[in-house]
Design a protein around this nucleic acid. Structure first.
Lengths: 237, 237
DNA sequence: CGTGCCAGGTGCCAT
DNA sequence: ATGGCACTTGGCACG
């Protein structure tokens, strides 16, 4: 591939030709390969994917994706940092390994429809509306939480976990604030309770869960445990 | 594309040609398109991806994936069930929408390197080694948990959440068992504690966390709360 | 490295 | 639809 070309396509390559293609480009290009194959994964779990048509994507950071005809998630994958080797037998076999944890994917390919090597330089990504930004807003404008609130420490560490935001209310009582960007569930209440249980051994303390909504049972639980829920309006008026 | 062909490639298609290609194949084929583009997402959060080369995959179930040059995760995406429309302006614009929640992705394309439509029939997938299988093993061989254990109910529902496995020990005391397939963390202890707190209002009850390992602080917490940890040997001897 | 935890989490299954 | 939760979760930040 000349340095001017963005991509190179191989149609119905032979096994040997794909092997060479892979070894030539796997460190510099993203590979997109459409094949008939079966897949064996073993590692943290163990899985098999029977014969079918699958899209294989291999990124130069070592990521391996095996996609099927639906769903957002790949059927099988290997995360960044994984190796890739090929063997030519009766079928073409691709093996991707990672070390920690030890995991292996074996792709047995019977037919290669096409393979593309692509020179991909991605853009810059920015995102807004995360939990972190909720916390930042409350730190900047503490009255958004409640009148008289004073933030003390972001990510306050305890042996029971890390408190999103520790502060004091207008009476000087410690306040533990847990933020959720989506509807708060039982687990969020548990989390807040953990922090409160720890801190209240030393000080009187309030616990406030801040989220745009809360499930029914989480709301019942939070009342039962004497904690508070504060609905968060994303408007941030 | 004839019904015999597995795939069809367009090299450097014009905007209009890609529009036609998409509308012809988006309901029956997986589309794989490599372009120079920028992306705007708005919905649960809001993000921008600046100009760069990105791989666009559109599955016939409506899934949209926008991949960059590294990482397992797509930079932007739309889940199954999303729509896709195109507009031709100065650039080619693809818009994918979903209803619940209301979310939109706008892809502004300045250059199309290639587009492929693919007829993808995926294989059957099977997986072993999940949490569910740990539970099934204990149900089949209760002594693996402890001598004299009797399983009573899988997924026992409480207003505090669902208990993986409820049973009784040899003395007839209720036992709540929570399984984790990986190293158990603070959240697992919290979860177990929730169930125990609920049931112990009515009966004396033990809580056992079953996992191949446990983090230091989770172990301390589980002791402090009077719960038990049982190390799970995947050997299932 | 391990630990904790958010994520536009996704996906599955239950009511 | 809402909810509870596992997931080969992935990814990040911090000790």
């Amino acid at each position: 591939m000349s340095f001017l070309e963005k991509y190179l396509v191989k149609h119905n390559p032979s096994f040997e030709s794909l092997q060479e293609f892979i070894s030539n480009y796997q460190n510099t290009h993203m590979l997109i390969i459409f094949v008939s194959c079966k897949v064996f994964y073993t590692g943290r779990a163990k899985s098999t994917l029977s014969w079918g048509d699958h899209l294989i994507i291999r990124k130069k950071d070592g990521t391996l994706l095996i996609h099927g005809s639906n769903k957002r998630e790949p059927i099988n994958w290997q995360p960044p940092g994984s190796s890739l080797k090929s063997k030519c037998r009766r079928n073409l076999i691709l093996i991707s390994r990672r070390r920690h944890p030890k995991e292996e994917i074996k792709i047995v390919i019977s037919k290669i429809y096409f393979a593309v090597a692509v020179d991909c330089r991605e853009g810059k990504f920015q995102i807004l509306g995360t939990e972190n930004q909720m916390v930042q807003q409350v730190i900047a404008k503490p009255y958004l939480l409640e009148e008289g609130f004073t933030p003390l420490k972001r990510e306050f560490q305890t042996p029971y976990g890390n408190i999103d935001l520790l502060g004091k209310d207008k009476k000087g009582t410690f306040v533990i604030v847990e933020f959720k960007r989506g509807k708060a569930q039982l687990s969020a209440v548990s989390q807040l309770k953990r922090y409160v249980e720890y801190l209240q051994k030393k000080h009187p303390v309030r616990g406030i869960l801040v989220a745009p909504g809360i499930t029914k049972s989480a709301e019942e639980l939070i009342k039962k445990w004497g904690l508070e829920f504060k609905k968060w309006l994303s408007k941030a008026s």
